[in-house]
Every structure is written in C-alpha cells, then in structure tokens.
Simulated assay, not measured.
Amino acid sequence: MINEEALGWVVRTRDPDFADWDAFTAWLEADPVHVSAYDAMMLADGELDSILPSDPVAMPPILPVPANDPGVRPRRPLRWIGGGAIAAALVATVSIAVLNRSDIYSVSTRPGETRVIALDDGTSVALNGGTTMRFDRKDARFAALDTGEAAFTVRHDAANPFRVTVGDTVFEDAGTIFNIVHTNAATRIGVSEGKVIYNPQAEAIALPAGRALAEDAQGLRVMDIAPAAVASWRQGQLVYSNAPVTQVAEDAARSLGLTVYFTPQAQAMRFTGTIRLDRDPARFLAQAAPLMGLTAVRQGDGWLLQEGPMKEGPMKEGNGPQS
C-alpha cells in the first residue's frame, strides 16, 4: 500500500500544474517509511528513458525544500506524460523497474539450511532456515528481512548506520550483534552486544545488550533476554524464558526443517529452558517433547505434539495430522 501511495505521488508531482505541496509534505512527514518509498520510486527516473516518448514536455524547475523538512533534498520531478492511460501504464512500469532493479538481490534458505552473507562493509548476516532477505549491491548498510530469522554482526559506523527493514519497521544498529525473527504473526529482536534502535524516526526505542522487543497481536513489548540466548541457534541450541511452545516449534522448524502440529491443549502451554538441536527429528523430539511436558507422535511427514509425558518405548506413530 505504501509503495502504491508513493507511486501516486511520483506521478502527481511530475505534473507541471501540481500545486498540492502541503498535502505531499504532510504525507512525507507522516512516516519515515514514506520518504524511503518515495525515494525508491524517484530512483527509477534514470530508467524511464526507454519508455518515455521521444519528445517529452520540458522539465519543470527543481522543487523547493519544505522549510520544516530538512531531511528531504530538492528533487527534480520526473518528466510528465499527459493522459490517464499513459500515466497508469507508467506507474506499472515504474513498479516493475523498482522491484527488478539489478542492484537489489534476494537470498533465501530452505528449512533446515543456513547461510552466511558477508557484506562489503565488514558486516556479516547469518540466515537461519526458511528465511528470505534482500540486500543492495550499491549499499552495504541496507538489509530487508522478508521472512524467517537472521543474526547480524554489524561493523559500527555512526556516520552511516546499518539499517534492517522488517515490514514497516526499521531497526538501526548502534554497534551491535543482534538476532531478528519475522513471521506472519510476530517480529522479535534480541540484542547480545551494543545497541539497536527500534524505528529511530518514530518510537526510537533503544535496545541495549540484554534487551529484547516483540511486536505481535498483543502490541509492542520490551523485555530482558540473556545475551547467550540471542541467536543461540547458531550454537546448536534453543534457549527460552516462558515462551509459547508454538514459538519453540516454529524455531525448530526453521533450524531442522520439521513440520509440527499441536493439539489445542498442548498449543496453550509455555516453556522455560534450553533444548539442544539435533538434525535427526526423532532424536530431537525424543528429548525436546518431554522437556516441554509433551508427547511427540509421528504424523506422516510431520509430528503431533500433545499434552502429557511420553510412555516408555519407541517414538509413537500416528495416522495423520489431527490439529
């Protein structure tokens, strides 16, 4: 939605007769993400020559900088093409051009697979399984976590801070080692060294070492976290303090490629402790399920976790997912 709004402003401000600068400035100032989105659309300016007519209308003068917005540089509006149909086609073309910019590239891992990306600035990013991220070949201080989990070891540069975009959220480094998890239901970050700033141009919540933040349906929460628990998956273990067992299962699924189901009663349980990762699913669940007070039952290609300790004997087998 934000990208669509930004494209709309790009098209409108291209018009030599555009006069609604107050509304445009208000939109920019409403959210720092708006400025980034508008800048991204403007970057497509140099790529439009191939789709513009050979005799475009003369360019209007450089736009003035709003007096109360020092962060916005003067911009030359893109050349305007009259006609609603052509303008709509141009918006679609700009969208494709920006999404397919050759300097932006994506890296993905399968569940159970890990990968480390070394950036040109000396920063390293470790991707856990089931993760997708985007990077910029022209800007080593940018990363976007689209889904999954990643651990960041950042080379600090106060003049050019490293930023991670997660949906509409921005995390800014202040000399840091941190771990971010992003799913459809929640975004979580834990800091083990240095400091991270949550949305520096909005809430500006500082997260020093030993602090964590969670953003989900319950709202925004800041809490303590043991530095050793941050990105503990890289050391072959998962560490929790009163976490939902569904979170434990999600984390194990990323690291090991497991498919896990829950009974309603088991889904409501919580867990505190440390679980050792094991690449063999049966061995992992044989030691992890009892720690959580649960029983693991094989369900085809996945596992059902249900309440109650496992009885003595081999791992149980079932006929299919029940929840």
Rank of each mutant, 00 (worst) to 15 (best):
G84N: 05
M310N: 04
W9M: 05
D31W: 01
L256E: 05
D168K: 09
G167V: 09
R137E: 13
R211G: 08
L305W: 00
D146L: 12
D45P: 01
R115S: 13
T25Q: 10
K316W: 01
L145A: 07
V10K: 01
T176Q: 13
G148I: 04
A67T: 10
N199Y: 06
D120E: 13
A144H: 03
D146V: 12
A288Q: 00
F162L: 12
R110K: 14
V181G: 09
D301H: 05
M59H: 07
G293T: 02
Q218T: 14
T169Q: 11
G190I: 10
I51W: 03
E307V: 11
V57R: 12
K316S: 06
D121E: 02
A40D: 13
G167Y: 09
G129T: 04
N3G: 13
A19Q: 12
V91T: 13
D121N: 08
G8Y: 03
I62D: 11
E5A: 14
A58I: 02
P244L: 07
N319H: 12
A253Q: 09
G83F: 03
R73A: 13
T187N: 10
P66Y: 04
A217Q: 11
A212M: 14
M1G: 11
P314C: 03
A151Y: 08
I180L: 14
R101L: 04
P56M: 11
A30T: 03
S192G: 09
S323E: 05
W233K: 06
A67V: 10
I197D: 12
G190Y: 14
G83P: 06
K138L: 13
G293S: 02
H182L: 08
A253S: 15
G313E: 01
T176V: 12
V196S: 11
F135S: 03
G308P: 01
G190K: 08
S102K: 11
G302D: 00
Q306W: 00
A214P: 02
D39G: 00
P290R: 02
R211I: 09
M42I: 04
D146P: 03
P244T: 06
S192Q: 13
V181N: 09
P16A: 06
D45T: 05
E203C: 06
D251Y: 00
L119R: 00
A226R: 15
P309I: 04
M41P: 02
N100K: 13
R298D: 01
T147K: 12
F171N: 12
A217D: 15
G257S: 08
S95C: 02
V125T: 04
E193W: 07
D17L: 08
L99D: 15
I117Q: 09
E317A: 10
A243E: 12
P60E: 06
A185Q: 13
D17M: 06
G210Y: 07
D251E: 11
A206M: 09
P264C: 02
L78Q: 02
A252S: 14
D280K: 04
W80C: 07
W21F: 14
D251P: 01
F171W: 15
Y38M: 07
N242R: 15
M223R: 11
H156I: 10
G46K: 10
V297F: 03
G175H: 10
M1T: 15
G130I: 02
P74F: 05
A26S: 13
E307W: 05
T274L: 04
W21Q: 05
Q267F: 06
P64A: 06
Q265W: 01
R14E: 09
F18H: 09
L7Y: 04
G83R: 03
L285P: 08
G148Y: 01
Q201I: 04
A97I: 14
T25N: 11
N3P: 08
